[in-house]
Design a protein around this nucleic acid. Structure first.
Lengths: 259, 259
DNA sequence: GCTTATCTGCGTATCGCATAAACAGAGTAT
DNA sequence: ATACTCTGTTTATGCGATACGCAGATAAGC
């Protein structure tokens, strides 16, 4: 049950949108939502989400732990604010005219945003997150990319969801592989695995593993800077390719039959 | 750094595959990995992942907290074991012959597995998870579904990844919406949102929201039992549609030119 | 200008949880 | 039998979130 304000909105949403009139009677405030969130994000970037404790955030600001609670009603609320604040899209974005290129560009932007603060992916993306400013902006941009694609609005929203999820999941995977990658399977381990992953038990997978097409121990895992992530590209290609088919069907129906 | 065994494999992997010889000198064991994991899963199912504490698990088994550590080296390891044990696929699966139908069926099976224990989605899916038995089995099944699809092995693995991620993300979304759905936006909240989501700031999204095509306050959010989840279907359709295009390209090259 | 209702930041205190450490008794190999 | 290895337990530690109450700051209303 997310805390709600007198506005009926979850407090985090109200704060993120800048509603939430500051009180006037008392002393001047020494802190602000912005500073707190910024400090928390800095810690998360540097030491991971687990290092974000109320104590750590407070200390990095030179305040006591409890002072934070004057601004944020719970750690959960802080996390929500961080999530939104961290996923910032570039100010001005020029999307290509062709919707295919535009969608790819949009996906790239979203991917960069996630990559800049991968820990956001560890936070739940629920209906509250959807209402946050940067999410709304991302959705708007996504719609912009598809403006020339003849699809009903709700399907466009669906496409945005599907692509966001794909991008998010890809970055998460990439991150997990990179993180624990070092611990990957040493040779002895691979030996043992071959004993259990037998053709008898896994007729389709076993051959693939033996032929070494799948994560050969030295792992082809992403090391490149920009974007040589085959899984990301494959998924995006498939989706866009699928959209092209839909577009053609649509066009076919709207004109007369086939071209 | 996930704890490794003398085998070089993460201990969780060794345990899950049933390697890990039980000691022989001491007294008989009163517990087993299986019972512990089963108890933990039961708690997670009933009260959520947060309710899974070492204390709770131990108590439900009638043992003390610390006794668990004789079987599991850390809570993290227990969570990994739970994740694998919870995602069980049906024993015998008959996949349709057509790869499109087979992939859809496979996706459905995976979806059902996630839905049965949604909390598994809150755990990180890293390289360790990939090596666990049920994941391997799922991959094998996925390959089986694509056996008649003319694609290189690594791309098939890619497709499996893409679809799993899509399914996982969809179930997670569905779950989050259902969970916090009750807290959704009351009318006053929607009012306020309309004040910030203006056509000026969000030229593409604002019209959509006004036309009510997007989560109209009473929310068309999934309530149906089986599968009226438009986002899930849309994504799967797009991917499969994209695969059809690839298939045709492949076929075109292999025979001569076009059909 | 005073009084008062509000606020602010802070110290203190509680509670839940993961996990280290050390111990007594149970079995087994020799 | 005897020593060695395990088992389950008890006890203790440390961390993190957060409820509570206090003293000083400050603006609103008289």
């Amino acid at each position: 049950m997310a805390e709600t304000t007198d506005t009926g909105l979850p407090r985090a949403v109200a704060i993120a949108w800048g509603m939430q009139e500051a009180p006037q009677r008392g002393p001047n405030r020494g802190l602000s939502h912005e500073r707190i969130v910024a400090a928390a994000i800095q810690i998360a970037d540097a030491e991971g989400l687990a290092a974000v404790t109320m104590q750590a955030v407070a200390k990095s600001l030179g305040f006591t732990t409890m002072s934070l609670y004057r601004y944020v009603s719970s750690k959960d609320e802080l996390l929500r604010l961080m999530q939104d604040a961290a996923i910032t899209l570039p100010e001005k974005v020029k999307l290509p005219g062709d919707w295919r290129d535009a969608l790819r560009a949009w996906a790239g932007i979203v991917r960069d945003a996630y990559r800049a603060h991968p820990w956001t992916l560890d936070l739940p993306r629920g209906p509250i997150a959807v209402l946050m400013p940067n999410n709304v902006r991302a959705a708007d941009l996504g719609l912009a990319a598809m403006k020339d694609l003849p699809l009903p609005d709700d399907e466009k929203i669906g496409v945005i969801l599907v692509i966001s999820q794909h991008v998010g999941a890809s970055v998460e995977l990439e991150q997990n592989l990179a993180a624990e990658g070092a611990v990957a399977i040493p040779d002895e381990g691979a030996q043992l695995l071959n004993e259990v992953i037998t053709p008898a038990r896994f007729p389709h997978l076993a051959p693939v593993m033996e032929s070494g097409n799948y994560i050969p121990d030295d792992s082809p895992v992403v090391e490149a800077e920009d974007g040589i992530d085959p899984e990301y590209d494959l998924g995006l290609d498939l989706i866009i390719s699928g959209l092209e088919v839909m577009e053609k069907q649509k066009a076919g129906h709207e004109s007369s039959s086939g071209m």
